[in-house]
Design a protein around this nucleic acid. Structure first.
Lengths: 329, 329
DNA sequence: TTGAAAGCGCTACCAT
DNA sequence: ATGGTAGCGCTTTCAA
């Protein structure tokens, strides 16, 4: 690979001048610049990012930590981040924490040691001391905390919405699945649903699903019908769990949506292909990713953030696991 | 962040000695080492990867290029790669090419400029000249070429198997979906199915699905039933497409598996949750990822590769979109 | 407008 | 067994 020295030699100038030329800093004569551009092109020169990074203590790399790359919600977030970053000349490197604390810590460490210029984390353990001692900006995605800027969907409204739709469509013995308690987002959804159910004066049971992951979703589904065989409406903790419940409902012979209504959360691409197609509360994952990226870029550029906590609206997506409602809103 | 200088000062030795100590190279007295370890711990020193990388022209980073992070097959590959790499002290950075050539090129460039020590690519355009001029080893994953070591599943056998199962279970007007022609893997599957169908002397139509992606899957499904309304057996190009077909089949009122059998390819986690649960040809994605990682690590360590093309077996997963067969194998 | 030189943090060579 | 030092490729003073 050609270095800046090669370029300098070829153009007959010093490396300092070349450096100024590439970075558009300080003076460089028009003619000299031409010479340099020419040399760069001929040698197909690309500045060595590592050397730059060593000097600047900043690369052009952005780290993104995902808690579980297998849950389709997160790849969608990643795409939003990616597209926005790409448009601004930053490069994204993704780390999959696999819901394991040590992996997450490893990735943070890797990102630090490789001089990322910023970090977006959609992962579990934002409370971690690891996140405090960062020398670069951090944005929380699909998570919140007091200390860091964040982007998340309105889980509380989502919870209320899910409950309201279910009630309006006639479920009266509702089972509310509560996601992992560590997640603020999961708690928000839960609280929203509880509040709505209380105020509508509808009976409901609560079951905790201690994870959002695939492997366990089936287990939660089985447990659900064992514990609450009479339930006629389920508010699932996310679409993956909802998918498992639909599957199990078929197995135990429940008719959907006649005998059992189900509402998911997320609206992952697969939900439309389920049978019956899953009604769900949609989080605008792609947009959330983009917003998080924008927030991070602002910080990198040293701009003031007008809002540190960006909350995006959710939306009820009506499909086939809910009945036609008589409501109007 | 503490540097090697700080450690040296604190331990009262030279940086050279510290360097030798951390890297276990050359002599360093037991007592000195203790001093150094002590200093490292007190300062919480971590060697700066960027500086190391600048000198060595090698980082500990492995690049992984995925063609489409939204197709659940690829995250599964990624996890295999990740786990194996982690066990060997390498760090994985994932790039999502999003099936776009320029993004793929960008990622290769980023990886180069950040001195990755090796690259695994599951992406489209392995033919690219970009892949030729690499200064670090490359392993192709879910792809093959003559020039580079690769790991892939036995698509040909998979195609045969899919066709055989469908025929044995009584489909006689089969529609064979052919994936994107650029992919050797897609061509292999196709060829396998064609060969089997010919030798079984069964009628079949061919429809090309020019992508594996979600957004288009629904379109292929609709096209399928418009063009071939009488088909009673579909060999889908992958599970995502199969999911869309199941969905569409419900819409047009086809009973599965009685009137229509479907076989997918991949066995992504979601397939078990479809209704009817999808029968499919399973690729051992996680293992493929691990094997690719092993292959890359061997190359990095300069070991000879006994086999450059690793082919993993596929397997028929019987679920509900195929009828009970009368066959025995 | 340009260039010489120092230095980012680390490793490796060569002395000692 | 240890240390001084050059140099990886780049940017940035500072002088010219």
């Amino acid at each position: 690979m050609a270095t800046i020295k090669d370029v300098a030699k070829k153009a007959g100038v010093s490396v300092a001048t070349v450096s100024r030329a590439i970075n558009d800093k300080g003076y460089v004569h028009e003619d000299t610049r031409k010479l340099i551009d020419e040399a760069i092109r001929e040698l197909n020169y690309k500045p060595n990012e590592v050397a730059r990074s060593l000097f600047n203590k900043k690369s052009r790399l952005i780290g993104l930590i995902l808690p579980d790359i297998r849950n389709p919600f997160f790849p969608e977030l990643a795409r939003g981040v990616e597209d926005e970053m790409q448009a601004h000349g930053f490069r994204l490197i993704i780390g999959n924490a696999d819901e394991q604390l040590d992996k997450e810590i490893d990735y943070i460490e890797t990102f630090k040691l490789n001089n990322v210029i910023g970090l977006i984390s959609a992962s579990t353990n934002a409370v971690l001391s690891q996140y405090k001692s960062l020398s670069f900006p951090l944005v929380l995605l699909d998570r919140t905390s007091e200390e860091h800027p964040s982007v998340h969907a309105d889980g509380y409204a989502g919870g209320r919405l899910a409950a309201r739709e279910l009630v309006n469509r006639g479920s009266s013995r509702i089972t509310l699945l509560k996601g992992p308690v560590e997640f603020q987002t999961a708690r928000d959804r839960f609280k929203g649903a509880v509040d709505e159910l209380y105020s509508a004066n509808v009976e409901f049971d609560v079951m905790t699903t201690a994870s959002f992951a695939f492997q366990e979703a089936e287990y939660w589904a089985k447990e659900l019908f064992e514990k609450y065989p009479d339930t006629d409406g389920v508010i699932a903790s996310n679409d993956v769990v909802a998918a498992a419940i639909i599957h199990e409902a078929h197995r135990v012979g429940k008719k959907m949506p006649e005998e059992l209504q189900i509402i998911g959360f997320d609206d992952i691409p697969f939900s439309q292909f389920l049978y019956p197609a899953l009604s769900t509360i949609r989080q605008p994952a792609y947009d959330m990713g983009r917003e998080a990226a924008k927030l991070l870029i602002k910080q990198i550029n040293g701009e003031k953030l007008e809002s540190k906590r960006i909350q995006l609206p959710v939306q009820f997506i009506e499909r086939q696991t809910t009945r036609k409602g008589d409501h109007h809103d």
